[in-house]
Simulated scan of single mutants.
Amino acid sequence: MEERPVEQCPFCTADLIGEKIPYSLRERYSPPYFSRLKIGIYNRKLDMITHWQCPFCKGVWERK
């Protein structure tokens, strides 16, 4: 049995990992768990997501 990943907001410690993806749908998705939609903040100049934002507390942290 695979271990459930841990991903939390560094500010409010909200759990950002959602429900397990059903096996029948997994071939279309790479991670085995849904995400709780952390928000990517995009930098047009760098053409990449540079920060994440928590959908619950609106805290912003750098992408690692």
Results as ranks from 00 to 15, higher is better:
Tyr33Met: 05
His51Gln: 09
Pro32Val: 13
Lys58Ala: 13
Pro5Cys: 10
Arg36Ile: 06
Tyr29His: 10
Phe11Gln: 03
Arg36Val: 07
Phe11Ile: 03
Ile49Asp: 01
Lys64Asp: 04
Tyr23Cys: 00
Asp15Lys: 10
Arg26Asp: 02
Gly18Met: 02
Pro5Asn: 08
His51Pro: 02
Lys64Glu: 04
Pro22Tyr: 05
Glu7Cys: 09
Met1Val: 10
Tyr29Trp: 14
Val60Pro: 09
Tyr42Met: 05
Cys54Asp: 03
Pro31Val: 05
Thr13Val: 08
Lys45Gln: 14
Glu2Thr: 15
Phe34Pro: 00
Ile21Val: 15
Tyr33Asp: 09
Asp15Leu: 10
Glu3Ala: 15
Arg63Pro: 00
Cys12Val: 11
Ile17Trp: 01
Ile17His: 04
Ile41Trp: 04
Val60Ser: 01
Pro55Val: 11
Gln53Met: 14
Gly18Val: 02
Gly40Ala: 12
Pro55Met: 12
Cys9Leu: 03
Pro22Ile: 07
Arg26Lys: 13
Gln8Gly: 02
Ile21His: 11
Trp61Glu: 05
Leu37Thr: 04
Pro10Glu: 00
Arg26Pro: 02
Ile21Phe: 12
Ile39Gln: 08
Pro31Asn: 06
Cys54Asn: 02
Pro55Ala: 10
Lys20His: 14
Met48Ala: 10
Cys9Thr: 02
Val60Gly: 00
Lys45Ile: 15
Trp61Met: 07
Leu46Val: 11
Phe34Gln: 00
Cys54Gln: 01
Ile17Leu: 10
Leu16Lys: 01
Phe56Trp: 06
Leu25Lys: 13
Gly40Tyr: 02
Leu46Ala: 15
Ser30Ala: 12
His51Asn: 09
Lys45Asp: 14
Ala14Leu: 09
Ile49Ala: 05
Phe56Lys: 06
Gln53Asn: 04
Glu7Phe: 15
Phe34Leu: 01
Phe34Gly: 00
Ile17Pro: 03
Phe11Met: 02
Lys38His: 07
Leu25Asn: 11
Asp47His: 04
Tyr29Phe: 15
Pro5Thr: 07
Thr13Gln: 13
Pro22Phe: 11
Glu2Trp: 12
Ser35His: 10
Phe11Thr: 03
Gly59Phe: 12
Lys58Gly: 02
Ile41Cys: 07
Pro10Cys: 00
Arg44Thr: 11
Leu37Arg: 13
Ser30Arg: 05
Leu16Phe: 03
Asp47Cys: 06
Ile39Phe: 07
Lys38Trp: 07
Ile49Thr: 10
Ile41Asn: 08
Gly40Cys: 08
Ser30Phe: 08
Tyr42Asp: 03
Glu2Arg: 14
Arg4Met: 07
Phe11Pro: 00
Pro31Tyr: 01
Gln53Lys: 15
Lys38Met: 08
Ile49Val: 15
